[in-house]
Computed example of a mutant assay.
Amino acid sequence: RPDRGLTTGQPATSRLPKSRPTKVKAEPPPKKRKKWLKEAAGNASAGGGPPGSSSDSESSPGAPSEDERAVPGRLLKTRAMREMYRSYVEMLVSTALDPDMIQALEDTHDELYLPPMRKIDGLLNEHKKKVLKRLSLSPALQDALHTFPQLQVEQSGEGSPEEGAVRLRPAGEPYNRKTLSKLKRSVVRAQEFKVELDKSGYYTLYHSLHHYKYHTFLRCRDQTLAIEGGAEDLGQEEVVQQCMRNQPWLEQLFDSFSDLLAQAQAHSRCG
Rank of each mutant, 00 (worst) to 15 (best):
R74T: 02
A96G: 02
V89T: 04
M91F: 07
D100V: 01
S87K: 03
Y88G: 05
L114I: 10
M84G: 10
A96N: 09
E90D: 15
E90A: 15
E111N: 07
E90N: 05
T95F: 12
L92I: 14
M84D: 05
P115W: 08
D100A: 13
S87R: 05
T78E: 11
L105A: 03
L75I: 07
T108R: 07
A80P: 09
L114K: 01
M91Q: 07
L97T: 08
P115C: 02
L97H: 03
M84S: 01
E106M: 08
E106V: 11
K77W: 06
E111Q: 15
T95Y: 04
L75H: 02
Y113K: 08
S87F: 00
Q103I: 15
L105D: 11
M101P: 00
M91Y: 11
D110A: 02
L112F: 09
D100T: 14
P116G: 12
E111L: 15
A104L: 01
V93C: 07
R74K: 15
H109I: 05
H109A: 07
L76K: 03
T108H: 04
M117P: 00
D107Y: 10
P99E: 08
L76S: 07
E111H: 14
P99F: 03
A104T: 14
E111V: 15
R82Q: 15
R118I: 00
S87P: 07
L105T: 03
E90Q: 12
E83Q: 15
R79H: 07
M81E: 02
Q103V: 14
Y85R: 03
Y85G: 00
Y85T: 02
Y85A: 06
M117Q: 00
A104W: 03
A96F: 00
P116N: 05
A80H: 09
D98C: 02
L97Q: 02
A80S: 15
L114S: 05
T95Q: 10
M117I: 07
Q103D: 04
T108L: 04
D100K: 06
P115G: 06
L92E: 10
M91T: 03
A104N: 13
D110G: 02
Q103S: 12
S94K: 04
A80C: 09
M117Y: 03
R118L: 08
Y85S: 06
A104G: 00
M84N: 06
P116R: 04
R118Y: 07
V89L: 06
P99R: 01
L97V: 02
K77L: 15
E111T: 13
S87V: 06
E106F: 08
K77I: 09
L76C: 11
E90C: 09
D100H: 13
E106Y: 05
T108N: 10
M84E: 07
V93T: 05
S94T: 14
H109G: 03
R82K: 07
T108C: 10
M117T: 06
I102Y: 03
L75F: 09
E83L: 13
E111D: 10
Y113T: 01
L75C: 07
P116Y: 10
I102H: 04
A80L: 13
E83W: 14
E90Y: 15
M91I: 14
V89R: 01
E106C: 08
A96K: 02
R79F: 11
D107P: 08
L112N: 12
E83P: 10
R74N: 13
T78G: 05
R82T: 05
M101D: 13
Q103K: 10
V89W: 01
R118P: 04
